[in-house]
Design a protein around this nucleic acid. Structure first.
Lengths: 357, 357
DNA sequence: ATGAAAGCGCTAACAG
DNA sequence: CTGTTAGCGCTTTCAT
């Protein structure tokens, strides 16, 4: 490669044809308009010169940048890297590049980033940041920007999205606990302004009913974040204020579950002997902690790949209706759950011992 | 925003000035060439129309895309997300966007990705993929692409890079173990074709000498990857073939250390009672496993941020000589290390018990 | 099947 | 200070 890259014009000059012919050859869609002979020659010269199409120039002309923006709330949350990877794997193969933006969980940042991406003519956007009511999503819809949500949905609009089947995940967890004999089950949920937090909470309520497990509101608390701190706070609240005894805790996410684990340890309770805990998400290395976590494994990479496929489809057929893809998770059984051992009487006393640590 | 975005021309027409004047106003560098009055008017109109500069067009003209490519070998390795985040935080503030590419550890992919990025006129590249001899790096240098390496260096060229001070990290680890009374220390290293693997290995050797710790080649094995499997293989090899007893293992990375932990458990040895283990990198959640890992915490986000700063500097002053920034890590003491308890005699017998599990 | 010409939106000389 | 002009590299009518 030389200091300044070869242009279509140079290829044309050397081949002895006009620039537009070269353009036609180099563009798969118009290749057939040119005779075999000329095409071959052009291709040869282009290769010799190490010609690379300048996407800025062609994008300026065609208004397509072959660039996709991906917005992530927090790349250091282990949930997202595999999603990004899945997205990238697909998009790269299709000749798109991925512009990654990490909003660091700030909605203002998010807005600015989207604006920036749109200014840069991204062909479409994949958002992993969406809340149930999300102004940024509204904005994209208004401006008619091809959009796919991943791991999230919004309430109002019917936006194309690919998500985990959270109800099915909660079902797996409850079935597992139920088979182990648990039927007084506490719930430590996630923020209700996210579709995942909401869906898992709703699923817990409705499935408990369906499976004839007791539902007691005082042992159900939704945290304000998917974090260890929120998990600690929620379980502390339950243990301090509830009157209903329980033998298991369903957490809406592994981080919440870790927080719960801490609380039990602090209060001298043993997991799983005294209380079983389940997580959700199957974070990397979550099975290496002690006790290893019983949790729900979500196909994150697949989530990303499907999101990319859906976006490509949207780019090619913008008129098609949007749809939601739900991927099935699976249960990972770890050491954090075990058959319920304590008879009802004992549980009461144990509850007291928890309340007065 | 309307269907089609406002252009500089429209702003000019409405304001009653020429397009170039608008351009001058909108460009910070040339703003002062225009009178206050006109500038204000232009700005107002631009805001009203929701004007956003088209970076493709300006990039085509100026040959600067304000885009930076970031190449990562494996985003699902928890090492990299914080680096990417740091890069992004800085670059975003400076008006650059980050095109992320994950080579999935394949050199061919890496080559293709770089070519693609270069074709797209990225202003510069940050590579976290570099090997000690790296053809892609050579390529970038040849083509004179502003380049910064992060977490890696190459042997041959003097490429701007920002890395962890691995020697200092190993020093911290050895000091810690030495203070605990260990002086027969095994080493499970990483791949020697990476600068990190190599540096930690060299540091281990030289610092053992400096600190008067015994160095026995039969309890020093370098794995072929920074992975749990490689760690397992290496420690198994040591335990099966070595004759030198040891009371501690220094692993070049947390994943390797995890593999070592597995091997000990399989062989009925207890960490830290029988053998202390140290990791390197301070992976998220590594302190939640059992025993929690004594390891070296690397300022990953800072690594990324500094890489971004160095790249910006390179873009603005390409003539300045390249330099290497070394960031200081710190020691995190966990439960995987404890004072050496076994007297020498006992160690021998314990070695036998390891060899015949 | 190919060439000519125009223009995507912007910036940079050059005038004035 | 501001307008004129040209052109970045490519695609796309429209002719031929």
């Amino acid at each position: 490669m030389r200091k300044t890259r070869a242009t279509i014009k140079e290829v044309a000059a050397i081949t002895g044809v006009h620039a537009s012919t070269v353009s036609r050859v180099l563009n798969p869609e118009t290749r057939k308009m040119v005779s075999e002979k000329v095409a071959e020659k052009v291709l040869r010269v282009a290769r010799e010169l190490g010609y690379l199409r300048n996407p800025l120039a062609s994008g300026l002309r065609t208004r397509r940048s072959h660039t996709v923006g991906v917005l992530i709330p927090d790349l250091s949350n282990p949930l997202f890297p595999p999603i990004v990877r899945g997205i990238e794997r697909v998009l790269d193969k299709e000749g798109y590049i991925v512009v990654l933006a990490d909003s660091e969980n700030s909605e203002r940042t998010e807005h600015a980033l989207v604006e920036n991406l749109v200014a840069r003519q991204v062909d479409g956007l994949i958002l992993a940041t969406a809340h149930r009511k999300d102004p940024v999503v509204e904005e994209c819809i208004e401006h008619n920007i091809p959009l796919v949500l991943v791991n999230r949905t919004v309430d109002k609009h019917n936006v194309t999205s690919v998500i985990n089947d959270d109800e099915y995940g909660i079902r797996l967890v409850l079935q597992h606990l139920s088979e182990l004999g648990h039927d007084d089950i506490a719930f430590v949920g996630g923020p209700q302004n996210t579709s995942t937090g909401h869906a898992r909470y709703r699923a817990f309520l409705s499935l408990c009913k369906e499976m004839r497990l007791k539902v007691s509101r005082d042992i159900i608390v939704n945290g304000n974040a998917f974090s260890e701190a929120a998990g600690r706070a929620a379980l502390n609240q339950i243990l301090d204020k509830s009157v209903t005894p329980f033998t298991a805790v369903v957490a809406a996410n592994d981080l919440l579950a870790l927080g719960c684990l801490d609380v039990l340890a602090e209060r001298g309770l043993n997991c799983p002997r005294d209380i079983s805990i389940t997580g959700f998400n199957h974070m990397p290395f979550i099975d290496r902690i002690n006790p290893s976590m019983t949790t729900i494994s979500i196909p994150h990479t697949e989530l990303g790949m499907q999101a990319a496929y859906l976006l490509l489809e949207r780019l090619r057929h913008p008129e098609k209706p949007s749809k939601t893809l739900r991927l099935r998770p699976s249960l990972i059984v770890g050491g954090s759950t075990q058959p319920r051992t304590m008879p009802v009487k004992k549980r009461r006393s144990s509850r007291v011992s928890r309340a007065i640590p």
